[in-house]
């Protein structure tokens, strides 16, 4: 690039002329094009996401209250595969007319790094959290070629009294339990999915950041096929890869910690007092993209006037995850 040096904040376009047309020592012409939506700066960066395996289970019960008890228990302690084994969440509420057994329910999505991990987590979570919940039943929520055992393994709890029923080409297991029968489809579908889509909301203070992420989560919950696995959909302890301590595979994302602004190579300016992250797992790249767009639009709708300063994203330099979600591309047409 000759000897020209340019520092760019935000996106830029370089006009490169053929070498024959350039005079020695020519300086490139740089066009600086920052992206702002309602006064909120959108960083020229990308979220880096990974390939995962995912499944959906429909959990029903006598009423919505008990279906949610089961669904929430089954998706508990599933914020990150780093330590939980799976990432999971309630995708949406199901009306009685939308479920196989005509009872209200909830759709849950589970993600893991491998089909083996997913199968193990599924069996544990449905066995311990759904089968144990009064009046519950569990059905496959994905129709795909690859299958994971659902009732196939749990049926043995019936100790020989379990009953198989082949209905409409699908096998179900009726496991006798103390409130009647636990009805469970034999298998559920498994698909290749995307985990780790994310964006960061950088705000004036915690109140403004919370308002932003709450608005985002409310908008993102309307998008199908995605979950935001952290508490309330939001994570405040974003991480970087590695640590100074041996054995730690992840540690605090110090570049985005406002209290370290003056101590480390910080990504935060003096106007940022709080950063919160939303992590998205989706059944496809398009689902994650749609969810990120909905969330970022909701944050930007609050605008700078409500203390939202910037939106950024977490990545590892693009070398680890095969999915890159460029914030400005996603928000194109919104500015």
């Amino acid at each position: 690039m000759n000897s020209a040096v340019c520092t760019v904040i935000g996106s830029c376009s370089l006009e490169l002329r053929p070498a024959a047309q350039r005079a020695p020592g020519a300086v490139f012409r740089v066009t600086y094009a920052p992206m702002q939506v309602n006064g909120v700066h959108i960083d020229d960066t990308f979220a880096e996401a990974f390939g995962m395996r995912a499944t959906r289970v429909l959990v029903t019960a006598h009423n919505l209250k008990w279906a949610y008890h089961a669904a929430i228990a089954a998706t508990g302690f599933a914020t990150s595969v780093i330590a939980c084994g799976a990432e999971a969440g309630v995708e949406r509420k199901l009306a009685a007319s939308d479920t196989p057994d005509g009872r209200p329910g909830a759709a849950i999505l589970l993600f893991a790094m491998s089909s083996k991990d997913l199968a193990s987590q599924l069996q544990r979570r449905i066995g311990q959290c759904v089968m144990t919940c009064p009046t519950s039943a569990a059905f496959s929520g994905l129709d795909s070629a690859e299958k994971l055992p659902l009732g196939k393994a749990l049926r043995y709890f019936g100790d020989g009294h379990q009953i198989s029923k082949l209905i409409g080409g699908k096998r179900y297991w009726r496991v006798p339990v103390m409130d009647g029968e636990f009805l469970c489809e034999e298998t559920t579908g498994m698909v290749r999915a995307v985990g780790g889509g994310n964006f960061l909301v950088l705000a004036r203070d915690a109140g403004a950041a919370l308002a932003g992420v709450e608005a985002a989560i409310e908008a993102m919950r309307k998008i199908p096929n995605v979950i935001m696995p952290f508490p309330g959909g939001v994570v405040r302890s974003g991480s970087k890869v590695g640590a100074k301590y041996k054995g730690m595979i992840a540690s605090t994302n110090d570049a985005f910690c406002p209290t370290l602004r003056g101590a480390v190579k910080s990504e935060l300016g003096p106007d940022i007092g709080c950063v919160m992250e939303i992590v998205i797992d989706g059944l496809s790249e398009a689902d994650v993209r749609a969810s990120m767009r909905a969330g970022m639009q909701a944050v930007c709708a609050l605008g700078a006037a409500r203390g939202i300063r910037r939106i950024s994203a977490g990545n590892y330099g693009g070398k680890l995850g095969q999915f890159h979600f460029k914030l400005r591309e996603i928000m194109k047409g919104t500015a």
Binding site: P100, D101, G102, R103
Partner: peptide
Amino acid sequence: LAFLTLLFRA
């Protein structure tokens, strides 16, 4: 018995 709903729907 919940399975009866599935059966009759089928």
